[in-house]
């Protein structure tokens, strides 16, 4: 009974793993083929390992209509890091204020932030664009990142973590003469390190994977993120160089996947503890 159960579980998991890995493997193999061969439908599951030129090609020179991939990687890294770091900083500060102080309009401030919890940029795309126009931030790097920094998820997460900190710890810190900022720096942030790491992963991936907002707000090629670049490379109908598209797609996958896998333990714990 147990043995057949395990056998079934292995089968299910192997099928699942194949479902996730095969498309990427296929993309890797396609990147090593001639574009003409792909157009003829001659995809194969065996890569031509001697033909990794398309990877170096797109990295150094880009493809039709897009800048070199290394440049787009820089923009993507900048955007993802700005969003992750910016969001974490402003959320720690505001959650700290809301949890450990009493001040006028505290509840109003919390609710004003909370209401935006699930209002993704996708639903306010046109009006946000109009506001960006008034602020002269269209087609600028801050315009890519700053509007995505404002959101309530991280604030809520830190609020929960901070609320669970025992009163005794706060009391002890105060007896030692630690002011609020000392307390934040020396106790609160170290204690919430796991949540911080988890949040960093979530926000980095979120920033890296943005598509609609960069599409709307940035038009100059020097601000193309790699995700934008990939979709641009799929020509509307004529002659897409699929090997280059697939090489770029594989490169685009590497940074967020490395971040998720290398920080997996923290990421999973922080994610599942935080959202509940």
């Amino acid at each position: 009974m147990r043995r057949t159960g395990n056998w079934l579980a292995h089968t299910v998991l192997i099928l699942g793993a194949l479902l996730f890995v095969l498309p990427i493997w296929l993309a890797f193999c396609a990147a090593t083929l001639d574009p003409a061969a792909i157009d003829r439908g001659e995809l194969s599951l065996i890569p031509r390992l001697g033909h990794l030129g398309s990877f170096w090609g797109v990295l150094a020179h880009g493809g039709p209509g897009v800048p070199p991939v290394w440049r787009m990687l820089v923009v993507s890294f900048g955007m993802a890091l700005a969003i992750a770091v910016g969001k974490i900083v402003i959320s720690i500060l505001s959650a700290f204020a809301v949890v450990f102080f009493r001040f006028p309009l505290r509840r109003a401030a919390f609710w004003a932030i909370f209401v935006t919890l699930m209002l993704p940029v996708e639903v306010r795309i046109i009006p946000t664009y109009a506001v960006m126009g008034d602020l002269h931030m269209i087609d600028t790097f801050p315009g890519l990142a700053v509007p995505l920094i404002a959101s309530a998820t991280a604030t809520l997460l830190f609020r929960q973590t901070f609320a669970a900190i025992p009163d005794e710890l706060v009391e002890a810190a105060r007896m030692d003469g630690a002011g609020p900022l000392r307390f934040l720096k020396d106790i609160l942030i170290p204690v919430s390190a796991a949540n911080l790491a988890a949040l960093f992963v979530i926000l980095f991936v979120y920033g890296w994977n943005q598509y609609l907002w960069p599409l709307v707000v940035a038009t100059s090629p020097s601000l193309d993120t790699i995700v934008i670049g990939i979709v641009k490379m799929i020509g509307i109908d004529t002659s897409t160089e699929w090997n280059k598209v697939m090489a770029t797609a594989v490169i685009a996958l590497i940074p967020p996947v490395v971040v998720v896998v290398s920080m997996q333990r923290w990421f999973v714990r922080g994610l599942t503890e935080g959202e509940k």
Binding site: L13, G16, A17, F20, V21, P23, I24, L26, A27, A30, L43, V205, W208, N209, Y211, V227, I230, V231, I234, W242, V245, M246, A249, A252, L253, P256, V257, V259, V260, V261, Q264, V268
Partner: peptide, 19 residues
């Protein structure tokens, strides 16, 4: 193997499924 696709961008998953 089950967790890493969390990192895939929606637009990239589109490209993979086109392939």
């Amino acid at each position: 193997l089950m967790i890493w696709p969390y990192a895939v961008a929606p637009a990239v998953s589109a490209v993979l499924w086109i392939l």
